[in-house]
Design a protein around this nucleic acid. Structure first.
Lengths: 344, 344
DNA sequence: ACGTTTACCTACAACGTTGTAAACGCGTCG
DNA sequence: CGACGCGTTTACAACGTTGTAGGTAAACGT
């Protein structure tokens, strides 16, 4: 239509509408005191020129970008993909965009990311830490709004949204105990870890055993370094090879559990008859495995929703001294076939 | 350390180093003609102040943001999560950041996204279309570098990176035929679609049948609207309910196939003995299902890598008239248990 | 020795927006 | 009738960077 490819600016709109650029800016920013006729003229001009504000200029001037960052270990891990999905949806409802970064769960990269120049592209960051731990807490004292997810650091200097790992893991274990299982194997523990998802979930497991008067047997604990599907499979193979006797397995997340179930079935064991199984995360996948997987819904949607809301509140707030908040999402057990009562 | 929280600017660095701001700018941008001693003084000042360029200002002035967009239907679909992972990794190697948008596969949202003001935050877009079709091709004639992924539009005005859908689907079907299967069901076809992943893969299927002299039987085609796991399960339930006889199933993607396999096994059918199964995508998951899933690796890594490279070339190029490129990734069959030869 | 290139550096003006301060017109009040 | 307040609008100066054009020495060619 038009040979000129330059995007329209406030000046162009102002010229067409016969007002100053500041009036156009005011119209765009919903400044209240504008005569309706003037406003209409400006809106017409905006429509005519198909004007769009230059976001770089706006953010240079105002210091806000309208973008929030989301740092996760790896998108190819379903949990984080589904988390990212939820965060993006929630951000969209609030009119902001999400910039995703992957850390690979590597501590050095996590630390680096916190001070990367890329942070300038965002007004704040939702940060799912996997490699850092409580000793690194001071790195979180950054100059921008930061909401922490995950279980690696508690009591840090920032807002923290997370799940009830211990309670949920205890509930999961109690669920197995209620089925009459007493020899409950664990898949995905991390050697010597007391904090972090693995450490906390293992704690919940031990609490449930203790409450039921079942002795803790270290031989039942399957350790892994990562929480990929293959790690669950490997850990289960090791348990089977060790010859230890068990009638249930608590996988510290769904992915691990699905890998472990695969190995159990290969070995000719029936789920839940010989070995009952429960996972953690409530991935979409858990409802289509064979058998379908009983699991913990840790409140992922709620976590995403809350993290975005809290972050945007921080961004909007002028009160920098607002004390950090610790927010826990509700969990629930999702019962499926892998813990169904044996039909006689 | 410092009571002053304002970030350092070029002016501050210039003052400390005793040079003009332009010289500092030149140092940062690797301008060649700078005296080594001057350069060192500037670098020292940068280090002392922990100076980081203001990216908004830079992008306002230069028109570049260092960010590329990636639009996918949904991150919670494993294929797109794994694609996003690959794109982010590749972008990182090239020093750019990725901003992810979800379209939900909705045509209207896809069209809208192409002209959203958010495009200003990015230098270009990698766009995985799912709702738009060839009729919408003109919407792709946008004023910024755009690389199209997916199978919805061919011969459009932009660079296009995609997979060999027809060839790969034909190979998959031939693989089943080579096992001696003649009654091959399909899961995930889209009613009346000739283009798009579903249409193309179905075409490959028909070509393979024809080449083998096997008549096409419409009763064997399971239609779905979406490609979620539940759709695969539903389609398979419908096939079983219809009473049609089949000895193999080609799921048009892995997720569908896994859903279908679940239903087959529930119905007491053995895989691959009674029904062989092959999928498409080579998700991580395919190597841990029971049985493990034979599938097509459509070259996802290569697609991500190429898309980023081609996009960055476009961004860097001054030649706007460069003709659009059509690039096809190589595929390969990944053989696993779901098509193993019956051991008699 | 003198013009001309080369290496290095700088002043200035943009990029397009928003915050500040102030001006304008008009009705209202003392 | 002049002062004041209010609704409406505007001029101007930033925000921090890079492109342009130019300036000053030193190095070079003749």
């Amino acid at each position: 239509m038009n040979g000129d490819f330059m995007a329209a600016t406030l000046h162009d709109v102002a010229r067409i509408a016969g007002v100053s650029i500041k009036t156009v800016s005011n119209v765009i920013n919903d400044y209240p005191h504008i005569r309706p006729t003037t406003k209409q003229r400006v809106l017409d001009a905006i429509a005519e020129l198909d004007y769009r504000p230059n976001l770089s200029a706006r953010s240079l001037r105002s210091g806000r970008t309208g973008v929030i960052g989301l740092a996760v270990p790896e998108l190819s891990l379903s949990y984080f993909a589904e988390l990212a999905d939820a965060v993006i949806r929630s951000a969209e409802r609030h009119g902001v965009t999400v910039l995703i970064e992957q850390t690979g769960g590597d501590r050095a990269r996590e630390v680096e990311l916190l001070t990367s120049p890329r942070r300038q592209l965002t007004d704040g960051l939702i940060f799912s830490a996997l490699g850092m731990d409580s000793d690194d807490s001071e790195y979180l004292r950054v100059g921008y709004p930061l909401v922490l997810l995950g279980e690696r650091i508690f009591g840090g200097p920032t807002d923290h949204v997370t799940m009830r790992n211990v309670d949920a893991a205890r509930a999961a274990t109690e669920h197995l105990i209620a089925l009459g299982r007493r020899r409950i194997a664990v898949v995905g523990a991390h050697e010597g870890e007391v904090i972090g998802s693995a450490g906390l979930r293992l704690r919940g497991y031990r609490e449930a055993l203790e409450a039921a008067g079942i002795p803790f047997d270290p031989a039942l604990i399957g350790y892994t370094t990562l929480w990929h599907r293959s790690n669950g499979a490997d850990a289960m193979r090791a348990l089977l090879a060790s010859g230890v006797d068990f009638d249930a397995v608590f996988g510290l997340n769904d992915t691990l559990t699905l890998g472990a179930m695969r190995v159990l079935q290969e070995a000719g064991l029936r789920i839940p008859k010989d070995v009952a199984a429960i996972g953690f995360d409530d991935l979409d996948e858990a409802q289509y495995s064979l058998p379908t997987l009983t699991t913990i819904d840790p409140g992922r949607e709620e976590i995403a929703e809350t993290a975005v809301r809290v972050l945007l509140e921080r961004i909007a707030s002028t009160d920098l001294a607002l004390p950090p908040r610790e927010i826990l999402a509700d969990f629930r057990i999702v019962e499926r076939e892998s813990t169904a009562h044996a039909a006689a």
